[in-house]
Amino acid sequence: MAELERHDNRLGIWGWLGGGRWGVERYAYILHRLTGLGILLYFLMHIVVTSLRARGIYLWVEGGFFHRPIFKLGEFLVFAAFAYHALNGVRLVLVELGFAVGRPIDPVYPYKTSLNVQRPLLIAMMILAAIFLAAGGYEFLGLAK
């Protein structure tokens, strides 16, 4: 009998970004990936910009291209991405080494999962990230002057 065609129902990127009733850890997962990609993009751009020095182009000097206000905001976004990625990364390292997820339990409805156990750690890290962001915003966006 000939094999019937099947429809591939893989969600792809939409699996990260859409559908389902999400929990806070799912949003943390998405933001971790997006900030990771953002920091990678920044590093690539950073290499390009600094390599221009070899051609005698200095874009970051006083009055140069990168002294426009939009780049100040960009700089702050890079800092924000870094702060979030680093602090959420600390949580993930702890969780992925089996800390803060609890021991196996007898599942009794309504089920409590390891997500409930590690939530205080997530909240603590997000509070720390918010403090870093506030301090960074104060400095980067020129409020300190």
Partner: peptide, 9 residues
């Protein structure tokens, strides 16, 4: 696995 937690939910 990066602990999105959806499987447990």
């Amino acid at each position: 696995c990066h602990y999105a937690g959806e499987c447990s939910r």
